[in-house]
């Protein structure tokens, strides 16, 4: 899978994501408070923490859809506060996201949902034409093969199981061909038996295609088994940020303890 904008490629220093004292407020509610972190190329990072800890907001900051109310955010070395809408889109093309609810268009065929990964590169006319006669079928077929559902190319997306839909969403990200893949609770809407398959698939793809992975998780076992680094979030703050081996059960207990 092709064409990465060379300009951005060369602009990447070492850090893929760099946050300095980032705060995000929704009215009186602070979703993130003074978060600083740095994620280097090739890392596999798990975000854990109770509901409402700010995991989704943090992922939103990382994919450029949420602007911080305070602090500095650098995506692929670019300061988002200084980017025009157009330049921001250029950066966003290098960051793919997989969602808990898959975020696919249910009444389109699988191939169109996968082809949606091309939209940053395709012209409007080409995109519209492809809805009538699908283009770049081979790329789409290869992506589906990579996620293990090669036979579903022309299936209607809403007819697939949850696990299969998540594979379609991953195939869409593969077609987008980003530098980093973010995953927001990718296995929370999926049968437990299929969860391991999806996590393993994500991990393998990132290893094979050399992509950075940041994944938020409810199930701690996958954080331990599939990631190298764990960031614990609670009430919008980073509680710990350590390699997997250094996270102790006590830390995790503090993270999830119900507030007195």
């Amino acid at each position: 899978m092709s064409t990465r904008a060379p300009g951005i490629h060369s602009a990447i220093p070492t850090a893929i994501f760099e946050l300095k004292g980032v705060t995000v407020r929704y009215g009186a509610l602070a979703a993130l408070q003074d978060v600083s972190l740095r994620i280097e190329a090739g890392e596999r990072v798990a975000l854990i923490g109770p509901s409402g800890a700010g995991k989704s907001t943090l992922l939103g900051v990382l994919n450029g859809s949420v602007a911080p109310t305070g602090g500095e955010v650098r995506l692929l070395g670019r300061d988002v506060a200084r980017l025009s809408a157009r330049a921001l889109r250029q950066v966003q093309r290098q960051i793919g996201t997989v969602y808990q609810q898959f975020n696919l268009t249910p009444n389109l065929s699988v191939i169109h949902n996968v082809n949606a990964g091309h939209l940053g590169r395709w012209s409007l006319a080409k995109a519209a034409f492809s809805l009538v006669i699908p283009l770049e079928r081979e790329t789409a077929a290869r992506a589906l093969e990579n996620v293990g559902i090669a036979d579903k190319l022309y299936e209607r997306t809403s007819h697939l199981s949850g696990g299969q839909q998540q594979r379609v969403a991953i195939a869409r990200v593969l077609v987008q061909d980003p530098v980093a893949i973010l995953a927001d609770e990718p296995i929370s809407s999926i049968d437990p038996e299929r969860s391991r398959e999806i996590m393993t698939l994500l991990r393998e793809l990132c290893d094979r295609l050399n992509k950075t992975l940041v994944v938020s998780l409810h199930a701690l076992e996958y954080a331990y088994s599939h990631c190298d680094r764990i960031i614990g979030l609670r009430e919008g703050r980073v509680l710990f940020d350590l390699p997997v081996g250094q996270v102790t059960p006590a830390m995790v207990e503090t993270l999830y303890r119900i507030r007195a």
Binding site: N63, G64, S65, R89, Q90, V91, Q92, R93, Q94, I95, G96, T97, Y99, Q101, F102, N103, L104, T105, N113, A116, G117, L119, G120, L124, A169, R172, V173, Q176, P178
Partner: peptide, 13 residues
Amino acid sequence: RDALHALLNGGAP
């Protein structure tokens, strides 16, 4: 809007 947001977040115009 979930699918729309997913595409926009991926840099689609």
